[in-house]
Design a protein around this nucleic acid. Structure first.
Lengths: 118, 118
DNA sequence: CAGCATCCGATCTGATACTG
DNA sequence: CAGTATCAGATCGGATGCTG
């Protein structure tokens, strides 16, 4: 993910962190608790291994996510939110809330009901 | 801006709306009040006319921004936030806040002071 | 199972030139 | 001043195959 070389405004930093098609949803999933890559890939519809690991790596670089590795076979790895990540999750949660409202106003209650969101 | 064809989660809708390098900063600027394209271009460092108008158009399609036109020459146009846009601005403001905190923790107080943010 | 490298098409962005 | 068209380069995203 290409980042700005310099920032005009702190807003842009936050935007860089959650930019990328999958970052918000990854954070959202991790908000439910630590998870392995394969578990995440199961939970996030449509994501491939490459994008998942790539974006997890970027979130790690931003200090939003941390990785734990365990010895032995089969390999076991666990990703989880850092404290910064938890704070960023507040933004994600707010985005979810607005998304729900916008969908309601747009007559998409059906979708929301199917997801158990209303 | 390419949008998802279908959504798994309301979060993704919100993400689509603020995706794009300039959308958050445009909303932020409009949060200060209605503005003409040329005024916005002055206030947003580095943006070109094409990107500005393109992203304003997309924000309009999402119902976040509205446009007012006046008759006569020189042409005069004013963009402003809609009610939905105002609500989205809450997200943007939260992004700004987190961005400020992250920069502080990252030792970039200098930058923030120069901007008058702390 | 976790992770990396590579290739390729789809998108995004920006510069420039042009219209009303 | 506002807005559109076009073109080229940079970036992104996804599929596939390979390694430990």
């Amino acid at each position: 993910m290409k980042m700005r070389n310099s920032y005009t405004c702190p807003l842009e930093l936050t935007h860089d962190i959650i930019r990328g098609k999958w970052k918000p949803i990854i954070l959202w999933q991790l908000g439910k608790g630590a998870a392995s890559p394969s578990a995440l890939q199961n939970d996030i519809v449509g994501i491939g291994q490459k994008m998942l690991l790539q974006q997890l790596g970027e979130l790690q670089n931003f200090g939003m996510v941390q990785k734990e590795q365990y010895e032995g076979y089969p390999l076991k790895v666990k990703y989880s939110l850092t404290e910064k990540g938890e704070r960023m999750l507040n933004i994600i949660a707010a985005m979810q809330e607005i998304g729900i409202e916008l969908m309601k106003e747009d007559g998409r209650e059906e979708f929301l009901k199917n997801k158990g969101l209303i």
